[in-house]
Every structure is written in C-alpha cells, then in structure tokens.
Simulated scan of single mutants.
Amino acid sequence: MSNSTDTPAPNRSSMVFLGLTVLTFLAASAAPTPLYRIYQENMHFSAATLTLIFGVYALSLLTALLTVGSLSDYLGRKPVIFCALILDMLAMGLFLSADSVAWLIAARLLQGFATGMATSALGAAMLDNDRQQGPLINSISPLVGMACGAFGTSVLVEFAPQPLHLAYWVLLGLLAAQAVYVWRLPESVSPQPGVLGSLRPSLHIPSQARAAMWQVLPVNVAVWAMGGFYLALVPSLIRAATGSNSFLVGGAMVAVLTLSGALAIFSMRNQSATRVLTLGSSLLVVGVSTIMLAVHSGNLGLFFFGSLVAGSGFGTGFLGSIRSVVPLALPHERAGLMSAFYILSYLAFCLPVLLVGSLTRIFGLVRTADGFSVVLIVLALGALLSVFLRRAASPCKA
C-alpha cells in the first residue's frame, strides 16, 4: 500500500506551519478560560454549569476523534486540516455572538469537533515530516498554545476594549490565514479507499503499540486530568482561596503550568522515555501537593511554584507517553493512533472535571479540589511504580 505522494519532501517551513496551526487550535480552546468569570457574572450560572460548558468541548472533541480521527489517512492531510480550520472559524463566530449559556455550549461543541478533527491530522502530518522531531513539536505546541490562549486573553480582558470579543477576532484572523496557506503544503499521504469505513467509531491502535499505550496510561490520565482542572476551575479556585479578583492571575497560572510543561519537554527531549516518565510522575506528585498547600494557606507565591513544578510534570509525563507510543505506528496507521491516543487523553481531560463540577455543589470547590488532588497523586504514584517495575524487568532498556 502506497501512502507517499510524488510531491517534494516536506521541509522546515511545513513543520513550522503545522506547529503554529496546532498552537492556534489549542490557543482558541483555552481562550474562554479567563472569560468564564465574566460569562458567569453576565449569565448567572453556577460552577457546575461552567464545567458542563467546559466538558461539552472535550466530549465533542472525543466524538470527532472517534469518527473522523483517521480520516486523513484516507483523504490526505490537507483537506482534513482545511475543514477543521473552517469549523473552528465558525466556532469563533458563535463565541462573538454568544449571549446565553446555550450559545456558549454550541460554540464549544463546534470548537471541540474542529479541534478533534485537526489534532490527529496535524499530529500525523508532523510525524510524516519528521519521525524524530514530530513527537517533540507535537508535545510542545499544544502546551504553548494553551498558554498563549489563556494568558493572551487575560491581557486583552484586563487592558483592551471589547473583553468578550477581541480575542476571538484575533483567532479568527489567524485561522483564516492558515486556511489559505494549508494548500501550499506538500501532501504526505495519497488517497486510498475505505473512507466510509473509517468513520465508524473505533480505536485504531496498531497491535505493536498496544502494550506501550496501556503502560503509559496512568501518568497520561493524571497529567491530562490536571490540565482539564486548570483550564476549567483554577481561576475560580484562586479567587476562592486568595480573594484575588485579577483576570491576569488566573490566566497567568494556566500559562505557568503549560509553559513550564513546554520547557520541560524541550529540556528532556533527548532523554529516554523511561527516564522522562519517571521524572514526570515524581514532579506531578510534588507539584500537586504544593498547590494544595498554597490553596489552604492562601499563598499566591506558593501557588505559582506548585504550578511550575506540576507543569514540568505535565510536560514530561506527556512527552514520555507520546514518545513511548506514537513512533511505533506505520505511516498509514499514524493518524489513527494519534486519534486513539488523544481519545484516551481527552477522556481524562473532561470526565474528572465534569465529576468535580457536580461535587462542588455538595462539598464546595476547595474540599472537592482536595479530593481531586489526592486522586492525581495516587495515579502519579501508580505510574511511578509501573515504571520501576518495567525497569526492574528490563534493566538493559532503562
């Protein structure tokens, strides 16, 4: 089966474009985070409704991954990326018009589907370009994107006019430019039959990658669950714990988490997957513990430090997971495997947050966050134990 076209070999400019496009999609996904407080004040909804608005994004993204996640293996990368860009542009239009919870849910549903469609196609395209650097850029771009979206929107809300609109106009312009440029990329996969069959919901995990996928699952669940918690509830948690009303503080904490994750990924890029996973699990335990000490002491400085450590655990845990799994796929299996990887990741991203949102009605935000943190620490410790057991079984591979 041939999957390469006769177009010129992909080059550095293609990788830059693909990385920036992933960054834009994830920036758009994080942009509403600093705005949730304004939406709550204007529309008078609860923390549970907030987590629902957050959760429908991830559930829609999962639907896309389950149905169109491997579509670019059959149609080619460029048309799938283009369609995802158009859908995300429409989502920005819905955000610009949003004046009720129903509009926000509709915008997040469309945005989630667009991001899910793009994620596997862009990730596979990066691997087509470079199997060595592809996983690295695939790991860094989403984290940098979330930081840009959360902190950039916070800055615009604090200092610029039209706080509920300007960020979406900026993102709309970026997405439109990328939709035009994507057709200049060389196509790395030739069309093949089986398009309709690929739309049946399924997990496309190649047999040679299955063992690695399940081995990294505990740490991957922990880091993505923490990421979901940060994007949905950390600005509200900071306000409840410290009394801070600054939009910049909540956005800055999300940026600290994601940028420290990106820096950790870059710093550990040449280390073995086993070492990266060990470090990621350890840092996650320390970081989450520090964050909860900060919440109970009301100390923003300690919160900042805990976010820095936890973010480093986020990045290294994510890098170790993706490097352990994704390079095992053959070219025509890459989009499907990327889809399966992100399905499991986004389940961890959204389902715990939806549960937390429901529990806040009963126990309050701080006590619920305590319980959530304990679960994250147990998962990270379990992942650490799993790494040690594998190292003991295969010392030559450590």
Rank of each mutant, 00 (worst) to 15 (best):
S2H: 14
T7N: 14
R12P: 10
L18A: 08
L26S: 01
L26M: 10
A27S: 11
S29L: 09
I38C: 06
I38H: 01
S46K: 12
L50I: 12
L52S: 02
F54S: 03
S60L: 08
T63N: 02
T63W: 10
A64N: 06
T67G: 05
G69K: 02
L71P: 02
G76K: 06
K78W: 03
I81M: 10
L87E: 03
M92R: 03
A98V: 06
V101D: 02
A102D: 13
A102Y: 11
W103Q: 12
I105L: 10
Q111H: 12
G112L: 00
G116Q: 06
M117W: 06
S120C: 09
A125L: 00
M126Q: 04
D128T: 03
G134F: 07
L136K: 01
P142T: 05
F151V: 02
G152A: 05
T153G: 00
V155S: 03
A160F: 05
P161Q: 12
Q162S: 13
P163F: 04
L164W: 02
V170D: 01
L172R: 03
A176V: 09
Q178N: 09
S188W: 00
S188I: 08
V195P: 06
R200M: 14
A209C: 13
P218C: 10
M226D: 13
G227R: 05
Y230T: 14
L231N: 07
L231Q: 14
A232Q: 10
L237P: 05
R239N: 12
A240R: 07
G250A: 11
A255E: 09
F266A: 12
Q271L: 11
R275V: 11
R275S: 08
T278F: 10
S281E: 00
S289R: 03
I291W: 00
A294S: 11
H296L: 14
S297L: 15
G298I: 04
F303C: 12
L308G: 01
L319V: 05
L328V: 09
R334I: 09
A340S: 15
A340K: 00
L344M: 15
S345R: 01
Y346P: 02
L347A: 07
I362Q: 12
G364E: 13
R367M: 15
V374P: 02
V375Y: 04
I377N: 03
G382C: 05
A383M: 09
A383Q: 04
A383H: 04
L384P: 06
L385P: 06
F388M: 11
K397T: 12
